[in-house]
Amino acid sequence: MTEYKLVVVGAGGVGKSALTIQLIQNHFVDEYDPTIEDSYRKQVVIDGETCLLDILDTAGQEEYSAMRDQYMRTGEGFLCVFAINNTKSFEDIHHYREQIKRVKDSEDVPMVLVGNKCDLPSRTVDTKQAQDLARSYGIPFIETSAKTRQGVDDAFYTLVREIRKHKEKMSKDGKKKKKKSKTKCVIM
């Protein structure tokens, strides 16, 4: 069974824990209790493949930012979460993405942009803004509501699919490099 290491990042209060708990335990946590770091595991079937999701729910508070490099190193894919009623959390996505790329030393890291709290009427981040940002990053965008469960499975499952595509691409690139290195030079 394939294991996928997913990391949920975003500013404090955007609903990272609520999304994760909704996926794992099928219930909505409405009281806000700032996370330092929590880890969850769940076995699911995605596109006919049974897999184990190892999900790291991270601290959004700035005082825990020193811990970010460590979990970013171990993560295979990242859910970059903002709240649709919090423009600052949307603007912060850029910083999370840049930090992930720096730590992973790669421009090509599996990510999904997630606009959470889409059940709320007080939207300050337009869907088109988020779609445009995701398009500019070359990553999928999904709106979710941890409260109603809308888009929750889709967000995590899409990230797994992005990781699969990335692994497939990397193995193809690896095979191309191996083929090239088999060419021999004969000096007579």
Rank of each mutant, 00 (worst) to 15 (best):
T2G: 14
T2P: 14
E3A: 14
E3Q: 13
E3K: 13
Y4V: 14
K5W: 01
K5C: 08
K5R: 12
K5N: 10
L6W: 05
L6F: 08
V7T: 09
V8A: 08
V8N: 01
V8Q: 02
V9P: 15
G10Q: 08
G10Y: 02
G10R: 05
G10H: 02
G10M: 08
A11Y: 13
A11W: 14
G12I: 04
G12P: 08
G12T: 10
G13V: 12
G13I: 06
V14P: 13
V14G: 12
G15Q: 02
G15D: 02
G15R: 03
K16Y: 15
K16C: 03
S17G: 00
S17K: 00
S17V: 01
A18P: 01
A18D: 02
L19C: 13
L19V: 12
T20A: 04
T20R: 00
T20C: 02
T20E: 01
T20N: 02
I21N: 02
I21C: 03
I21A: 02
Q22R: 09
Q22W: 04
L23S: 09
L23I: 08
I24P: 00
I24L: 15
Q25V: 15
Q25M: 15
N26V: 04
F28R: 00
V29P: 04
V29M: 08
V29D: 05
D30P: 04
D30S: 05
E31H: 02
Y32G: 00
Y32R: 01
D33K: 00
D33R: 00
D33Q: 01
P34M: 01
P34S: 01
T35V: 00
T35L: 01
T35F: 00
T35P: 00
I36N: 00
I36T: 00
I36D: 00
E37D: 07
S39N: 09
S39L: 02
Y40T: 00
Y40V: 00
R41Q: 11
R41P: 00
K42H: 12
V44T: 07
V44N: 15
V45W: 05
V45P: 13
V45T: 12
I46M: 12
D47R: 13
G48T: 11
G48L: 07
G48E: 10
G48V: 10
G48A: 10
E49S: 12
E49L: 08
T50S: 10
T50C: 09
T50N: 11
T50H: 06
T50D: 13
C51W: 10
C51E: 10
L52R: 14
D54F: 12
I55R: 00
I55W: 01
I55M: 14
I55D: 00
I55G: 00
I55C: 07
L56P: 00
L56F: 03
D57I: 00
D57K: 00
T58M: 00
A59M: 00
G60Y: 00
G60L: 00
Q61M: 09
Q61E: 11
Q61D: 15
E62D: 09
E62I: 03
E62P: 07
E62C: 03
E63L: 02
E63H: 02
Y64H: 01
Y64M: 01
Y64G: 01
S65C: 05
S65N: 03
S65D: 03
A66K: 07
A66E: 04
A66W: 15
A66I: 05
A66F: 15
M67Y: 09
M67C: 04
M67I: 06
M67N: 09
M67A: 02
R68W: 02
R68A: 03
D69A: 05
D69E: 13
Q70P: 07
Q70N: 15
Q70E: 05
Y71K: 14
R73L: 06
R73I: 06
T74V: 10
T74C: 06
T74G: 10
T74N: 12
G75Y: 05
G75P: 03
G75V: 03
G75W: 05
E76I: 09
E76W: 10
E76K: 03
E76Y: 09
E76G: 04
E76D: 12
G77N: 01
G77P: 03
G77E: 15
G77W: 08
F78H: 05
F78R: 02
F78D: 01
L79I: 12
L79Q: 15
L79H: 02
L79D: 01
C80V: 08
C80L: 10
C80R: 01
C80P: 01
C80K: 02
V81N: 03
V81I: 05
V81T: 10
V81R: 01
V81E: 09
V81W: 05
V81P: 03
V81F: 05
F82I: 12
A83K: 08
I84W: 13
I84E: 15
N86T: 06
N86I: 03
K88W: 07
S89G: 10
F90L: 07
F90W: 11
F90V: 11
F90I: 09
I93N: 04
H95R: 13
H95G: 14
H95V: 11
Y96N: 13
R97Q: 07
R97E: 10
R97S: 10
E98M: 08
Q99V: 09
I100V: 11
K101A: 14
R102S: 10
V103A: 05
D105N: 03
E107H: 06
E107K: 10
E107T: 11
D108W: 04
D108P: 04
D108E: 09
V109L: 08
V109P: 04
V109S: 06
V109R: 04
V109Y: 03
V109M: 08
P110Y: 02
M111G: 01
M111L: 08
V112E: 02
V112M: 09
V112L: 10
V112A: 09
V114S: 02
V114T: 04
V114Y: 00
G115Y: 13
G115R: 09
N116V: 13
N116D: 07
K117N: 14
C118V: 10
C118P: 15
C118N: 09
D119P: 02
D119G: 11
D119N: 12
L120F: 09
L120P: 15
L120I: 03
P121K: 12
P121R: 09
P121Q: 11
S122E: 11
R123Y: 09
R123E: 13
T124C: 10
T124R: 10
T124K: 10
V125C: 10
V125L: 08
D126N: 06
T127A: 06
T127H: 06
K128T: 06
K128E: 08
Q129N: 11
Q129E: 13
Q129L: 07
A130Y: 13
A130L: 09
A130T: 10
Q131S: 08
Q131H: 10
D132K: 09
L133A: 12
L133D: 10
A134Y: 14
A134S: 14
A134G: 13
R135W: 13
S136M: 09
Y137A: 08
Y137P: 15
G138V: 13
G138W: 03
G138C: 05
I139V: 06
I139Y: 12
I139N: 05
F141L: 15
F141W: 05
I142S: 14
S145E: 15
Q150A: 07
Q150H: 11
G151I: 08
G151N: 15
G151W: 12
V152I: 08
V152K: 15
D153G: 07
D153S: 07
D153I: 07
D154L: 07
D154M: 06
D154E: 09
D154G: 07
D154V: 06
A155P: 05
A155K: 02
A155Q: 10
A155C: 13
Y157I: 08
Y157H: 06
T158R: 07
T158V: 07
L159M: 08
V160H: 04
V160K: 13
V160G: 04
V160Y: 11
E162D: 07
E162S: 09
E162K: 08
E162A: 06
I163T: 04
R164A: 09
R164S: 07
K165V: 14
K165F: 08
K165D: 05
K165H: 09
H166P: 04
H166D: 10
H166T: 11
H166I: 08
K167D: 07
K167H: 07
K167I: 04
K167G: 05
K169Q: 13
K169T: 11
K169I: 05
K172M: 13
K172A: 09
K175I: 06
K176E: 04
K177W: 05
K177S: 10
K178E: 09
K178N: 07
K178H: 13
K178G: 07
K178W: 13
K179R: 04
K180V: 13
S181L: 09
S181Y: 12
T183G: 04
K184G: 14
C185A: 13
V186N: 11
V186T: 04
V186S: 15
I187S: 14
I187K: 08
I187C: 14
I187W: 15
I187L: 06
I187H: 07
M188N: 12
M188A: 05
